[in-house]
């Protein structure tokens, strides 16, 4: 017996990538689909992602953006500290907040901050940033394996899945594993235009992960962002695959892998 689940990271209003990822997950056959939060941000037309999630039975965790938009808060709680990063984060957040309807805000408010699962005898935690903080950045190069083990041990888990950073990674530790599932919202600063989601194959023997590239019509998304007056810097990221904003939070290794 084995169970396969699909894990989608931050959607960031990229409803075209979400649609493509749902199609891919259904095509390979999954027993359940989950989104780890941050449905809004960055992209255009915030309301377009919600019917895709609800009509396709995608079970969602609440990210920091979802908490902020759902509760009409003043900022996205992304956790940036640099002035330029915060400048662009504010543009993105103000647009998303102003263009998310009340029904969708109520949906965002209703989401749980985490989901614990027991599948085939394996214990999984789905969260947004980290098990202790929704907006904690767990980068591959700044997260010691013994730090991951603390959460695995405290919660008696076999696997933790998170998103928030925008860059996928996976590590096996002494007692379990951690998977950052990547994001659907924007490419991951590697010069490619595709985005990512993650499949987990879960059996009594263990959990196997597979990162899946999602190709979608990024040019259409870029045109729509332009129509909506979103920053040229965001659109450049879609077309180039390189991040142009929110860079100062990147640690040395992840920053050096980019070109800005």
């Amino acid at each position: 017996m084995s169970t396969r689940i699909a894990l989608f990271g931050g959607v960031y209003n990229n409803y075209l990538a979400l649609q493509a990822a749902i199609g891919m997950a259904d095509a390979v056959g999954v027993d359940a689909k989950y989104c780890l939060g941050d449905i809004g941000a960055f992209g255009p037309y915030p309301n377009r992602s919600f019917p895709l999630l609800t009509d396709n039975d995608v079970i969602c965790v609440q990210g920091n953006y979802d908490d902020s938009v759902g509760n009409d808060l003043s900022d996205c709680q992304c956790g940036y500290t640099d002035a330029r990063d915060n400048h662009f984060a504010k543009i993105s957040y103000d647009y998303t907040l102003a263009n998310t309807n009340d029904a969708n805000k109520a949906f965002l408010r209703s989401l749980p901050p985490e989901i614990e699962l027991e599948i085939e005898g394996q214990r999984l935690l789905l969260c947004h940033g980290s098990p202790r903080r929704t907006n904690e950045f767990l980068w591959e190069s700044t997260t010691p394996l013994h730090f991951v083990d603390m959460f695995l041990r405290e919660r008696n888990l076999d696997l933790i899945a998170a998103t928030h950073t925008g860059i996928k990674w996976q590590a096996k530790t002494a007692i379990g594993q951690f998977v950052n599932v990547g994001v659907l919202g924007r490419p991951e600063n590697d010069g490619n235009t595709h985005v990512w989601f993650t499949l987990l194959d879960i059996s009594s023997k263990g959990i196997q992960h597979r990162f899946c590239p999602v190709h979608y019509d990024y040019q259409r998304l870029g045109q729509e962002m332009e129509q909506e007056g979103l920053p040229e810097e965001f659109i450049k990221t879609l077309y180039s695959g390189w991040w142009t904003t929110c860079l100062e939070v990147l640690p040395q290794k992840e920053r050096a892998a980019g070109c800005h």
């Binding site: 902020s68 509760n71 009409d72 808060l73 003043s74 900022d75 996205c76 709680q77 956790g79 500290t81 907040l97 903080r133 907006n135 904690e136 950045f137 100062e248 939070v249 640690p251």
Partner: peptide, 14 residues
């Protein structure tokens, strides 16, 4: 710290 942590609850939008 290299990057200050932030767990601050945001206030209501005005």
């Amino acid at each position: 710290s290299n990057v200050a942590v932030s767990n601050a609850p945001a206030g209501k939008a005005t």
